[in-house]
Amino acid sequence: MNVAELNGSLGEAWRLACQRIERQDARLLLQHASGATHAELIAHPERALSAKQGDRFAKLVSRRASGEPLAYLLGSAYFCGLEFVVSPSVLIPRPDTEILVEQAVKRVQAWHQAPTQVAARSGDRLRIVDLGTGSGIVAIMLARRCPSVELTAVDVSAAALDVARANADRHGVQIRFLEGDWYVPLGDERFDLIVSNPPYVAAGDAHLQGNGLPFEPFDALSDGVAGSDGMACIRTLVEGAWAHLLPGGWLLIEHGYDQAVQTRTLLLQAGFDTVSSWRDGAAIERVSGGCRSPD
């Protein structure tokens, strides 16, 4: 398949692309390159594809055939039913992370339904911080589902924060974004809830070489420590949480499929109560957390 072949009709371009990549991927990329809707592709496959559109489509198909994730080619991905801007500076949103949002929302709902010393000490608005926010999906979903809370989002990557700010603007939510490494930019601030989806894949894990992961930011996937168990960032989060949680506040962390026991152990050793883990849609323990007891 070459560019010249793709300068014909929409239908012919779609057919040729399907010889190299999945049919649905080819359709979505053709819509993206041509501006046609799905209905137009079906109803008017004879519509001409311009030389510029054909060239753009050919390049997208080649990139997809090389393994580059579809989300990066389209510039967006869906999470919890909403569309978010993504770029190679951030991880592609995954359904696994929905459980982190769900558990955070449950903590907020519990505080509102049965006001405690935590809510009273925090003033009228509960305070939540999302550490390692990436594209901002967790903070943005919490801002949408819990509009009465005050959201802060932190990331060490300026490029990731640019994407997160764009997503916050897109979805009309107010979030304070801070650049820095984990707790560093927070100073001595304290929160009712700390949430995080940190890098947790061991640096030598073979999974990092497949499923499009080589195209995603390595620093957002793994702690990068040679020979590590992938738990370095989770340890940092647990060890630093106590100084940034209000009494009665919660820490919730997403982790790998086999890291729940280790994470719970770290939480217990750090003095957290009500330590537990929650399963994602695949019945895998994906999020663990605990509560700092009221003083």
Rank of each mutant, 00 (worst) to 15 (best):
P69A: 11
Q53P: 00
A58D: 00
P88E: 15
P88N: 15
I42Y: 10
Q103E: 13
A110M: 15
F57S: 00
F84H: 03
I42S: 12
E46F: 07
S62Q: 03
A65V: 02
A77Q: 01
I92Q: 13
F57E: 01
L82D: 02
I99S: 06
A39R: 08
V90A: 08
E83Q: 12
L70F: 09
V108M: 08
D55G: 06
E98T: 08
R107D: 08
K106T: 10
G67V: 03
L100Q: 10
Q53V: 00
D96H: 14
S62C: 03
G54P: 00
Y78V: 07
S89E: 06
A104K: 07
V108K: 05
R63K: 12
T97E: 15
R56V: 03
L100R: 11
A58V: 01
E40M: 05
R63C: 02
L82R: 09
P95T: 14
R107V: 09
I42R: 05
V61F: 05
D55V: 03
L49W: 01
A43F: 14
L49E: 00
P93Q: 15
K52F: 12
G67Q: 10
P45T: 06
F57W: 04
R94G: 14
P93R: 09
Q103I: 06
H38V: 01
A110H: 15
A65P: 04
L73Y: 05
K59G: 12
Y72D: 09
T97C: 15
G54W: 00
E40S: 11
A110N: 05
P93G: 10
P69F: 12
S50P: 00
D55A: 07
L74C: 14
L70K: 03
H44T: 04
V85M: 02
R63I: 00
K59Y: 11
P88D: 13
R64F: 10
S76Q: 10
A104W: 13
L74M: 14
C80M: 04
E68T: 02
P69H: 13
F84V: 02
F57Y: 06
C80F: 03
G67S: 06
G81F: 04
F79P: 01
V105A: 12
G54F: 01
L73A: 11
I99M: 12
A104G: 15
I92R: 15
P93M: 08
S62G: 10
H38L: 05
A43R: 09
P69M: 08
S50N: 06
G75F: 09
L91F: 15
G75L: 04
P45M: 10
L49S: 00
V108E: 10
S66G: 14
I42N: 08
S87G: 10
P88G: 09
I92F: 15
E68H: 06
V86K: 01
V86W: 07
K52V: 09
P69E: 14
A51S: 09
S62K: 04
A43T: 12
V105N: 05
E46Y: 11
S50R: 00
R47K: 14
L74E: 07
